[in-house]
């Protein structure tokens, strides 16, 4: 799973962090941080996929 964010689009609204808190973190300057490694856990991977399809500004891309 290779996950990337388009920082020109991401506005730090936290939807992904709400869905997959182990993978996404947003600091108080609203910058998104993505975990270096996505855990090999199907539940977390499902959360990641859902984050990608739920991102309201379409900033996330996933290559499986």
């Amino acid at each position: 799973m290779k996950l990337s964010v388009d920082r020109t689009l991401c506005d730090g609204n936290g939807v992904c962090m709400g869905i997959a808190p182990d993978v996404f973190d947003i600091d108080d300057d609203l910058n998104l941080h993505i975990a270096d490694e996505i855990p090999d856990d199907p539940a977390v991977q499902a959360q990641v996929r859902q984050s990608v399809t739920s991102c309201p500004v379409l900033a996330l891309t996933l290559e499986e």
């Binding site: 506005d11 609204n13 996929r49 990608v52 399809t53 309201p56 500004v57 379409l58 996933l62």
Partner: peptide
């Protein structure tokens, strides 16, 4: 499409109707 973008980025001209379509995996 992304409804939340309507009152934010779309109104402010930062995105267009074409760029707010939800992705199809």
């Amino acid at each position: 499409y992304s409804r939340p973008a309507l009152s934010k980025e779309l109104i402010q001209g930062k995105v267009t109707a074409e760029t707010i379509r939800l992705p199809v995996p």
